[in-house]
Amino acid sequence: MRFHWTRFALATGFALIEHGRNRFAMVLVTLFVPLWTTLAFVAMPDTPAHMRLRATGETLAPHGNELTELSGALNAVTLITGFMMFAATFSGNSFDRRLAMAGYPRAHLVLAKVTALALISAAVAAYATAVTCLAWTPRQPLLLAAALFGAGLTYGALGVGFGSVLHREVEGMFAIVMTSIIDLALQNPVTSSGADNPLTRYLPSYGAMQASTAAGFSTSPVPRHLAIQFTWFAGAALIALVGFRRSTRSTLPVTAQPPDPKPRNGDFSLPAPRRTAEPSASLSDTETP
């Protein structure tokens, strides 16, 4: 048990250190979330937007600026987690491969990445919920935080997937931004007349959008739509996992690298130089075929 725990804890700690050293992401979290959500709240008109919420079947008339603020919070959370996970995967892929080939258990590396993603998503979702609550009062703040958390997880997993298959950083950033724009713009009743189209229920943040709208303007629980969001996360995570397995596999026969059954003790040491003269001098007593 200790074997598993130490490897999981070390990999998780290093994954968090890596995210923490992504200064641009830290600035985005600190500034982009309040900036985007506040601008959406202040700049949009507060005229009621009539809409039918599929999750509860209710007809709602939320203020346009509050609805857009929710969409902005989802947008900010998904872009940040997607970007952070993409950046970590893109830059860390080769080193993960090196670790796996050297014998680091891949399951522990994967679990560590998922744990780091969950902690980041939870922190960003809590922050975005708090910022939202400063501007107006959603009916169910905890549900809002859960919806943002689910969307953050999903985009984080998509970021890992993009990081595994794309070859340039700009490609990954473009993929994440475009996915988020299409995903959220189509669902926003303020900006899209097609928000009621049945196709929107297949979008990556559909469950989170429904749940967060219910959290903002309704008192009904929406467990099914939260579940839809977590199913999206599970699907995206599965694809990311397949990508990770592919990029860290070894082509050598399994029997070719017998792992040491016991940890090697540290009593081995570098052999002493045969002579201390110039290194090339050692060749005089080197046998060559």
């Binding site: 490897r7 070390l10 290093f14 670790l99 040491d260 016991k262 940890p263 003790n265 540290g266």
Partner: peptide, 17 residues
């Protein structure tokens, strides 16, 4: 931190080598 990561991968008890 690199050495500690690879130490776990190689299952070494210490980093003297």
């Amino acid at each position: 931190q690199h050495l500690r990561f690879l130490q776990k991968a190689y299952r070494l008890t210490d980093l003297r080598y």
